[in-house]
Design a protein around this nucleic acid. Structure first.
Lengths: 113, 113
DNA sequence: ATAATCTACAACTATATGGTTGTAGAAATG
DNA sequence: CATTTCTACAACCATATAGTTGTAGATTAT
């Protein structure tokens, strides 16, 4: 899969509150799909679809233990997204540097809100 | 709009290569919708839809200048996404701290790759 | 004044997505 | 061994999305 498609998938996977919650829970510790499914007001199959999408986005990793699949969050993928956002910010910063807009530094840049 | 819906929108807006490119270009400097549209192999109306979605996600800001709308990137929204990702990483870190897995610290944590 | 450019949106189409129900196999439990 | 639990996926439906074409008004250029 091309890099851009993987990036599409990463952001798309996080564009849903249920999936974000699954990632958050599995960052804390491993969960089976059934135990995850018990937390959401939707069918088991729906949760399973969410987990499958998260796996394709490499935001979670599954490992089988007997009849159960245990799911754990993958912090490396979060760091990948982080790095992409850093690129956006770097472009914005280079714009300020280029124009040398002194007023720009008055924009609460990284400061108090 | 609820906070979670806005987060959905933010990640969804970034889940498309064309929209990411629009954000990147407008982080560098203001562009009219027409000048943006000339960069992509799709209709003007399609690009306009993308810009509208980015505006709803607050990733870009529009200002009218005569008959043109000038679009500029909004780094604050990028920082909002950043902060969300930091929360995921914080949860992952607290898991490591809780278990006190010494081996975990050998995982190139924040170090050389 | 007229033509060109820019923008906005409606209506449409094809595809993708989110969730459900149903079926079925593997493993754990009693 | 029988039952229960867990998982995987197909087929379906309703809704959302991505892009197109067409129409129209506002602004700028000639």
């Amino acid at each position: 899969m091309a890099a851009q498609e993987q990036v599409d998938l990463l952001f798309h996977a996080l564009a849903d509150a249920t999936r974000r919650d699954i990632v958050m829970r599995t960052m804390q510790g491993e969960h089976s799909i059934s135990s995850l499914a018990r937390s959401y007001a939707m069918s088991f199959a729906a949760v399973q679809k969410h987990v499958a999408l998260l796996e394709r986005a490499e935001l979670v990793i599954k490992r089988r233990q007997g009849r159960e699949q245990l799911v754990r969050g993958n912090v490396e993928a979060i760091r990948d997204v982080h790095a992409l956002l850093d690129q956006f910010e770097a472009v914005w910063r280079s714009r300020i540097d280029r124009f040398g807009e002194i007023l720009a530094t008055d924009w609460n840049e990284g400061g108090t809100t």
